[in-house]
Design a protein around this nucleic acid. Structure first.
Length: 974
RNA sequence: GCCCAGAUGGUGGAAUUGGUAGACACGAGGGACUUAAAAUCCCUUGGCCAGUGAUGGCCGUACGGGUUCGAUUCCCGUUCCGGGCACCA
């Protein structure tokens, strides 16, 4: 009895059975090899899941199921990144506790995820906002606080070791406050007075990766620089290890490159610039740096070779040297300049690169030439990088060049053939000259003076470094652009810091008292006195005597102290969640040593590339720290990374005539390109028409359903719709990121309802390469649906054939093994989009061959199982019923079967390329005479000695002589 | 400005990594079944040219060169689109 493919029934049945049978429950099993698949866990937003979300989940689910079929013990967990700004802002607006909305959103996500049929082990679910989870976020923070980075060992060490060292050296201060200040400079989690990105509109500081083009990533509000006392993580200490680790992991080159840029290693030299009196140089016309200050400062350069071209020095306006160097005569001008710089926002500084600066009145002495050079202060030099001071070489640095031109400073070219009359020559290629201009322009140290003339730039850099080092003028130095991460936020909905302030000194709450739970507040806004939202909490003080949280009113300076009001940023909870999945219910440890030893690290991580400089750096840092502690067993958390592309939406626009309630069909509009605004403007009979978003569900093709849109919102109800000649209203369409506000979100639920989860899964993979972004377009979904129906029909034909035990024919076996080969290698390389066509071809071939063999069907069902698990389980059950494999009314799951093994011998009708067999043909890559006819070529090819070897026992089916010099011979076993 | 990744029919995209370009799907056109619709099935579908026809010829993977018997694939240059970094000395 051939049954119809009823996906609704099948999918419902298997969702139930999978839950009942705990099909996807995973436990540590030493007898099997582990495989850890992970998706970046989602932030549960109010908009629910859209068709873009599952793309990565489906891809990883296919891999997870495939690995399981290969006999691996697969961990494939899922959870929620539950702390975040939207829930908090919603809470401010409505007064609803963020936990309530977050949990409601999570339930909705879960419901949607369940429909798609993932193999997640839900017993291991984590939510970053639950105390049993954030206990370990707080714990890790405390460990970082109590650790420092040992430069020699290149790893984190307990802070006690550092104290011991100080004591031994005799540099350990007696005063408790001084001890605290000293250790703060070393702790991996530390309180720092740093310039931060302050966003007044959000009322919080932001990390560097949360600021894009000078505005906040979320909301696009202006961000300013502000000096604040903040918790920071010393990420920069791990710069070199973060960089080196990239070479050991299997990530895309572009994302590694992004991280390398972000870490920004540059090798250079630090050179000390001295005054006359403490300099070994004694010249007649040299002056001290400044009267009354006999100091020196250090500059950083990657172009040590250009020392002979230095004509001035520049300090960053924020540098503390500015005050020391400025002469009384220049004081006023400098103060004014500093005031101007402070008035500029980060964004202005970023966009506007006009040359500004001021002379400090002081001079520095070039240790190589002995020249006296003016010291300027200019905003183009950044305080946070290198030493905040540079030597300026206008001939070979475009920024120095612009500055020199503006202030009329000399420019000395140092590279042969470089014309610096119009612009600087920045390239690191060429032969050095003018270094020195004349022998007496190079200062002698211990009888040696530097000469670089005739060397290449690379040689000159090395030579200068040697010289500087040999004569103690400075040192070779590696700098990193990577900054320490600012780790506190002035928000409510985040992990509280397990810290209280005892006489102003931050003190950790005892480890055994963790977690420190987020207190209840009645308002989620900052307090009237400008304190963060936690300032609203009544019960937010720590009693040392009882080790409990007590009411703020009992703060008495004896045993009760105020608790930190800041909370942790979003990336805190997402930095080690992959470790927690290994052992999610353990209340004694983040992860037990046994579980960590078994699961090691994530073998396959799938997520968006937008996290390249955020989460993917922070969690690598966090993991390296835990690795130093021995908690994590691998130095890198994510061995292989796949970045799924974004699925974009089709936004639809209707056009409203300005000042009216008339909407005009798009094809009736005249287009004008506005050069200034760089966009199109539309007109109807001289009146401008403005685009208005229309919901995607009201549009089919590009035709608007006018009735539907009238029902949608009041603004359309009474609208007048001006239709085109065909009586249709045409909309304009654009591809944009899917977003609630653009009304272009396509929900996977509808697809599941109309086509089933298996079709959705197949189609999302069929759409194109997983890493590529593409617009969502349902046009092709019917193809995948039809394929599943054909697959079903083929299976029913086989199962209902009385002779299903028939031995398969050679052609059927060939079809099958071609498929095994293709699908196996596709899954290994994540080219799912080409597997699905292979299935289609195989099913067509087998249908045409009127295949009736279960020997073929069984492996086919296993092959499709990772892609379309529901239909596979259903067919497997039917096969096993026919096979009589049901035990006690229970059928084994297809996922307990074994992945079929490809056997080359079934592809025998194969071919040879100079002795190498492949795909259906024998190819002779020989040199034939240019004038040989095809017949002659075939004759020559088949009689060649190498050919005999391959033609033996074969029957020639067909020969193809490709003009020019190739002969293909299609053969078949006799 | 610097770095990275791309460009193939009407559309999404294949091509065993140097070997007959355009798999598979969508769309379009034609046909079968049907009272009709849905569903299903079959044929055609890169462009141009010749032929009643089977078929044959030429052009064609953004553009211009090169290496090679042979290039979508490798090398050099140009254009365009996307991503990252950006006063980082």
């Amino acid at each position: 009895m051939a049954k119809e493919y009823n996906f609704r029934e099948i999918e419902k049945k298997w969702h139930q059975l999978w839950t009942e049978r705990q099909t996807y429950k995973v436990t540590e099993d030493e007898s099997r090899k582990k495989f850890y698949v992970l998706n970046m866990f989602p932030y549960p937003s109010g908009a629910g899941l859209h068709v873009g979300h599952p793309l990565g989940y489906i891809a990883s689910d296919i891999y997870a199921r495939y690995k399981r079929l290969q006999g691996f013990n697969v961990l494939n967990p899922m959870g929620y990144d539950a702390y975040g700004l939207p829930a908090e802002q919603y809470a401010i607006k409505t007064g609803q506790h963020p936990e309530k909305t977050t949990f409601a959103n999570i339930d909705r996500y879960r419901e949607q995820l369940d429909k798609i049929g993932f193999s997640f082990d839900w017993d291991r679910e984590v939510r970053t906002c639950t105390p049993d989870y954030y206990k370990w976020t707080q714990w890790a923070f405390q460990k970082m606080f109590n650790s420092y980075f040992d430069e020699e060992l290149q790893k984190a060490q307990p802070i006690e070791k550092l104290i011991e060292k100080f004591k031994k050296e005799g540099t350990w201060p007696a005063d408790e406050k001084a001890q605290n200040d000293l250790l703060m400079q070393y702790r991996l989690a530390f309180l720092g007075e740093t310039m931060v990105n302050w966003c007044p509109k959000l009322g919080t500081v932001l990390a560097n990766d949360e600021v894009v083009n000078g505005v906040s990533e979320r909301g696009g509000y202006p961000v300013e620089q502000k000096k604040m006392r903040q918790w920071c993580l010393r990420v920069s200490a791990y710069s070199q290890r973060l960089l080196d680790g990239l070479d050991t992991i299997d990530w895309s080159e572009s994302i590694k490159e992004t991280q390398r840029n972000w870490i920004g290693r540059s090798e250079g030299a630090e050179i000390e610039i001295k005054t006359l009196s403490n300099s070994p140089l004694k010249g007649e016309n040299s002056l001290p740096l400044r009267e009354g200050w006999d100091g020196s400062f250090t500059i950083f350069t990657t172009r040590a070779d250009t020392m002979f071209g230095v004509t001035f020095f520049v300090l960053a306006p924020e540098s503390e040297l500015v005050d020391k160097v400025t002469t009384p005569e220049q004081r006023k001008a400098v103060d004014e300049y500093i005031k101007y710089v402070k008035s500029r926002t980060e964004r202005e500084r970023m966009i506007d690169h006009t040359v500004t600066g001021v002379f400090s009145g002081a001079y520095g002495i070039n240790p190589i030439t002995g020249d006296k050079c003016p010291i300027y202060i200019a905003e183009y030099v950044l305080a946070g990088y290198g030493t905040g001071a540079i030597m300026a070489v206008p001939a070979h640095d475009s920024r120095d060049y612009a500055f020199a031109k503006h202030f009329g400073l000399p420019i000395i070219p140092l590279v042969e053939g470089a014309d610096v009359s119009e612009e600087s020559y920045d390239a690191k290629e060429g032969i050095v000259m003018n270094s020195p201009i004349s022998p007496d322009k190079s200062v002698e140290y211990d009888g040696e003076s530097l000469c670089l003339n005739g060397l290449t730039i690379k040689e000159a850099i090395a030579e200068t470094k040697r010289f500087v080092k040999a004569h103690n003028l400075g040192c070779v130095k590696v700098n990193y652009r990577l900054r320490d991460a600012i780790f506190s936020r002035q928000r409510y909905w985040g992990e509280p810091f397990p810290v209280y302030y005892k006489n102003g000194i931050p003190t950790m709450i005892p480890e055994e008292c963790l977690p420190l739970e987020l207190p209840q507040v009645d308002k989620f806004l900052p307090t009237e006195t400008g304190e963060p939202p936690l300032g609203n909490a009544q019960k937010w003080a720590w009693d040392e005597k009882t080790n409990t949280v007590v009411d703020c009113s009992s703060i008495d300076n004896q045993t009760v102290f105020p608790i930190e009001l800041y909370t942790m940023p979003g990336f805190a909870g997402s930095s080690a969640y992959y470790l927690r999945y290994m052992d999610p219910h353990n209340d004694k440890a983040l992860v037990s040593p046994e579980a960590a030893a078994y699961w090691q690290n994530v073998d396959l991580y799938v997520g968006g590339s937008e996290h390249a400089t955020g989460h993917l750096i922070y969690s690598r840092f966090w993991n390296k720290f835990l690795f130093d502690l021995g908690v994590s067993k691998k130095e890198e958390p994510f061995q292989k990374l796949i970045n799924q592309g974004m699925i974009q939406g089709w936004s639809s626009f209707v056009y409203r005539l300005r000042g009216t309630n008339k909407f005009v069909s798009f094809d009736l509009l005249e287009v004008q390109y506005d050069n200034e605004a760089k966009k199109n403007r539309y007109f109807y009979q001289g009146t401008e028409a403005d685009p208005v978003y229309a919901d995607i569900s009201m549009v089919s093709g590009n035709v608007l359903n006018v009735e539907k849109i009238r029902e949608w919102t009041p603004e359309f109800r009474d609208g007048e719709f001006i239709l085109n000649g065909n009586g249709q209203y045409i909309v304009n369409q654009a591809i944009e990121k899917m977003s609630k506000s653009k009304y272009n979100v396509v929900n996977p639920d509808d697809i599941c309802e109309n086509y089933g989860a298996d079709t959705l899964r197949l189609y999302e993979m069929f759409l194109g390469p997983i890493e590529q972004s593409k617009p969502w377009d349902v046009a092709g979904i019917d193809g995948c649906f039809r394929f599943l129906k054909k697959f079903w029909a083929l299976a029913q034909n086989i199962l209902n054939n009385p002779n299903t035990q028939n031995a398969p024919s050679a052609e059927e076996l060939k079809s099958l093994h071609k498929l095994i080969k293709k699908v196996t290698s596709d899954i290994e390389t994540f080219s799912y989009n080409t597997s699905i066509p292979a299935f289609m071809v195989a099913v067509n071939e087998l249908s045409q061959l009127k295949c009736s063999s279960r020997t073929i069907l069984e492996p086919m069902v296993i092959l499709i199982a990772p892609f379309a698990p529901h239909i596979a389980e259903e067919l497997w059950e039917q096969i096993q019923m026919v096979n009589g494999k049901w035990v006690n009314g229970k059928c084994p799951s297809v996922f307990d079967a074994h992945w079929p093994v490809f056997d080359e011998k079934y592809l025998v009708e194969t071919s040879v390329k100079l002795g190498v067999q492949f795909n259906g043909k024998v190819r002779f890559d020989m040199l034939f005479p240019a004038d040989a006819t095809p017949e002659q070529m075939v004759e020559m090819a088949t009689s060649a000695p190498e050919a005999q070897k391959h033609l033996e026992g074969m029957q020639i089916v067909k020969t193809i002589a490709i003009p020019k010099r190739i002969v293909n011979i299609v053969v078949k076993p006799v």
